[in-house]
C-alpha cells in the first residue's frame, strides 16, 4: 500500500444529541464510585462516556476521578478502562491508540473505530502531564481525546494549589493568614487556548461545563467524530475544594460562564466558535459581576473589595483587550493592525 502524506483515521460518526430527550439512555459510568456529594467531575465522567458510547476505551490518570472511582471490585466503568500514572494521560492515550491501530492493520483484532479517551485532572493534565498531552496532540495519525477535568486544585490530596487554581483562592498551600491575606497571586493557565494555539495537528479543542450537559456531550461527540488528537477542558465545581454547599454545583458552573470567567467555545480547524451563554456574551449580553460567583465560595471568603476589583479587572481584560476575546490573550499593536489592514 502506497503511503501518502495525508493520513486519515476512520472514526465513529457521533451525531450531536438534538436536545435532552434525544440523549441515549444507556450509562457506561454507573454505580460503584465513591465521589463526594455534588461532585461535578463524576458527572463529567458519566456524561463523557455516555456521549462516547460503548465502543470506547477510557484511560484515567491518577487523581480523584481515579482514586474515588475505581476501588477494586467496585469499578463503575462499563467500558474497558485502565489507570495510568499522574503525568501519563497523553502518552497512555497515544500508546493505546497506536497499539489498536497496529493490531487492526495486522488483522490481530477486528478493524473498527474504537474511541480512546484519556482523562486527567488539572494537576495531572495542566501541571505534571502537560508535556505528554502536548506531545500526543502532535500525533495526528492516532485518534485520542484528552479530557481535562479541572476542579482547580489537587483535590485528591486535600486541596493544594495547581497551575489551574484561581487567583487568591484559599487552598492548603495558600491559607489566608494575618500577615498575608492573598497567598496565591498567580492567574491560572489558559489550557484550552494554549492547546489550540500551539498544536497545528490538533483539529479540535473545546471548553465545556457539565452544567450544560447536552452541550458538553455534543462537544465530546464532535471531538471523537473529527478524530486525530483532540482536547477538551471541562470546568468542574468541587464542593470540597471550593467550599460551598453541594447543592450549588450546577449553579456555580452556570455562574462561571455567565460572569465570563470561563468561556465556552470550540476551535475546529482553527475556527473559534463560541457557544451557549458565552455566545450571548459575545453578542452583547452583559456579563454578571464575578463577585456573584466568587462570594458563593468559601475559598474566596477572605477577599476584600480590592481583591474582588482586581479579579474583575482581569476578567474584563480577557473580554476587552484579547485579540480573540477570552480565548487567546495576544493583543495586536495598533501599528500592526494598520499595516495588516485590519479594522
Amino acid at each position: 500500500m502506497a503511503e501518502t502524506t495525508t493520513f486519515t483515521n476512520a472514526t465513529q460518526i457521533l451525531e450531536p444529541f438534538r436536545g435532552v430527550k434525544k440523549v441515549t439512555i444507556e450509562e457506561y459510568f454507573t454505580s460503584g464510585h465513591r465521589t463526594c456529594q455534588g461532585c461535578e467531575s463524576a458527572l463529567v465522567m458519566k456524561l463523557m462516556v455516555k456521549a462516547a458510547g460503548p465502543r470506547t476505551i477510557v484511560l484515567g490518570s491518577t487523581g480523584c476521578m481515579y482514586v474515588a472511582n475505581t476501588t477494586y471490585y467496585t469499578t463503575p466503568w462499563v467500558v474497558p478502562w485502565m489507570h495510568t500514572q499522574l503525568g501519563s494521560s497523553g502518552s497512555a492515550a497515544l500508546g493505546t491508540a497506536a497499539g489498536l491501530k497496529a493490531l487492526m492493520r495486522k488483522g490481530k483484532m477486528k478493524a473498527e473505530p474504537i474511541n480512546v479517551i484519556a482523562f486527567c485532572g488539572d494537576g495531572g493534565g495542566a501541571d505534571m502531564g502537560i508535556g505528554a498531552i502536548s506531545a500526543t496532540l502532535t500525533h495526528k495519525e492516532y485518534n485520542s481525546l484528552i479530557l481535562l477535568y479541572d476542579n482547580e486544585s489537587y483535590a485528591n490530596t486535600d486541596i493544594q494549589i495547581s497551575g489551574m487554581t484561581p487567583f487568591g483562592a484559599h487552598t492548603t498551600f495558600s491559607p489566608p493568614g494575618r500577615a498575608k491575606r492573598i497567598m496565591h497571586t498567580r492567574w491560572k493557565k489558559n489550557m484550552a487556548g494554549m492547546m489550540a494555539a500551539g498544536h497545528p495537528e490538533c483539529r479540535y479543542v473545546a471548553t465545556v461545563c457539565a452544567s450544560y450537559a447536552v452541550e458538553m456531550m455534543n462537544r465530546v461527540r464532535r471531538a471523537l467524530t473529527i478524530g486525530g488528537p483532540t482536547f477538551i477542558h471541562s470546568l468542574d465545581p468541587c464542593p470540597k475544594g471550593w467550599d460551598y454547599d453541594p447543592m450549588l454545583s450546577h449553579e456555580l458552573g452556570e455562574l462561571a460562564i455567565e460572569t465570563g470567567l470561563f468561556p465556552l467555545y470550540e476551535v475546529e480547524d482553527g475556527q473559534v466558535r463560541y457557544y451557549g451563554k458565552t455566545k450571548a456574551i459575545v453578542e452583547g449580553r452583559a456579563r454578571k459581576p464575578v463577585r456573584e460567583y466568587l462570594l458563593k465560595q468559601g475559598r474566596f471568603a477572605h477577599f476584600t473589595e480590592e481583591d474582588l476589583a482586581y479579579f474583575q479587572r482581569k476578567v474584563d481584560a480577557m473580554w476587552q483587550t484579547w485579540e480573540i476575546p477570552a480565548v487567546v490573550p495576544f493583543k495586536r499593536l495598533d501599528a500592526t493592525k494598520s499595516a495588516l489592514g485590519a479594522t
Binding site: Q85, S91, G95, T96, A98, G99, L103, R105, K106, A132
Partner: peptide, 27 residues
C-alpha cells in the same frame, strides 16, 4: 511493521508502551 511514536520523555515512552501492550499488542 510497527507503529512508531516519538514522545517527549522516557516516562511517556514507557507509558505509551504500556498502553499498547494493555490494548493487546507487543511493544
Amino acid at each position: 511493521d510497527a507503529e512508531t511514536v516519538e514522545v517527549e520523555g522516557e516516562n511517556s515512552a514507557l507509558s505509551a508502551a504500556v498502553g499498547a501492550v494493555t490494548a493487546g499488542g507487543r511493544a
